[in-house]
Simulated scan of single mutants.
Amino acid sequence: MNKNIVVIGAGTMGNGIAHTFAQTGFKVNLVDVSQEALDKGLATITKNLDRIISKGNLTEEQKSETLNNISTFTNLADCASNADLIVEAATENLDLKLKIFKQMDELAPANCILATNTSSISITKIASVTNRADKVIGMHFMNPVPIMKLVEIIKGYSTSKETFDTIYEMSKTLGKVPTEVNDYPGFVANRILMPMINEAIETLYNGVAGVEEIDTVMKLGMAHPMGPLQLADFIGLDVCLAILNVMYDGFKNPKYAPNPLLVNMVTAGKLGVKSGEGFYDYSESRKAENVSKMFLK
């Protein structure tokens, strides 16, 4: 497979995916709806490259090469014609993803693989709006993408062995550890993680313990690098809610029903790190940075 990659979405996951491909030598076209979003994404990539340099794991020359491998676009039609792989990393919203995949299918060459970074939505459902279901696959990267090794590789009902093998090997080229997963709501990571986060919120909601106390028990008692409530803030409470809703709708099992406190916090716009407030207060930029640094030691 050639090395022409398109990444749709310059947010937290999209810029991390673009960074990872570019640093490995792939040519990346990064697409978002506004130049402002693209500029913010590039600024994040630059900052993260500087962090890697400060730890002695990258040279200034390699940083320049990585940034030179990234081009930005506000229109997918301007950069999809020679793509070998398009990775969609938009918001976790089914209707939006279906709309994007229809567009990807229309604009990309016939041999192009279409991947989604969805953390819970059915690959089979996403593939159903394309004319190349055999070339649609899930690549669920973990946040922060340049640091975290895992990639869940999710096969839809019609994903071909050739497509799976290509993406599996490409993930290893990126320095990741690909793990084969079948297409069920939440896949593996979030099917296990989100009920734990939801139960932590339930524990808080029921007054069993406070936020810091719950997180301390899980960090010191279970050796988790982050407590579940702090992790929920880091992921985004809106994303947690969306994933739980997908699993609840998919399994019709009350154990996946989002806790009312989570629903109310999202409704009130308390989304965690990205909004400045969630279970913790991130109103000072230093506090928000300290959360991400937990992964960057």
Rank of each mutant, 00 (worst) to 15 (best):
F73D: 01
E88K: 04
K63M: 10
A83P: 07
I45C: 02
L42H: 07
N75I: 06
A83E: 01
R51A: 11
T74F: 07
D78E: 14
L42K: 12
A83Q: 02
T59M: 12
V87I: 15
R51Y: 09
A43L: 12
D50Q: 15
D50W: 11
I45P: 00
I45L: 07
I52A: 06
T72F: 06
L67V: 09
G56P: 04
N48E: 11
K63E: 09
K55D: 02
D84S: 10
L85R: 02
D78I: 01
N69H: 13
E60F: 14
A43R: 15
I53Q: 06
L58R: 10
L49G: 03
I45Q: 01
L58F: 13
N57W: 14
E61D: 14
K55Q: 12
D78P: 02
Q62F: 07
T46Y: 13
N57P: 03
T72K: 05
K55F: 10
G41R: 00
G41Q: 03
L67S: 05
F73P: 00
T66C: 10
I53L: 09
S64K: 15
S64N: 14
N57Y: 15
A83F: 04
T74R: 02
F73L: 03
N82E: 13
S71H: 10
N69S: 12
S81P: 05
I86W: 01
A43S: 15
Q62N: 14
N68K: 14
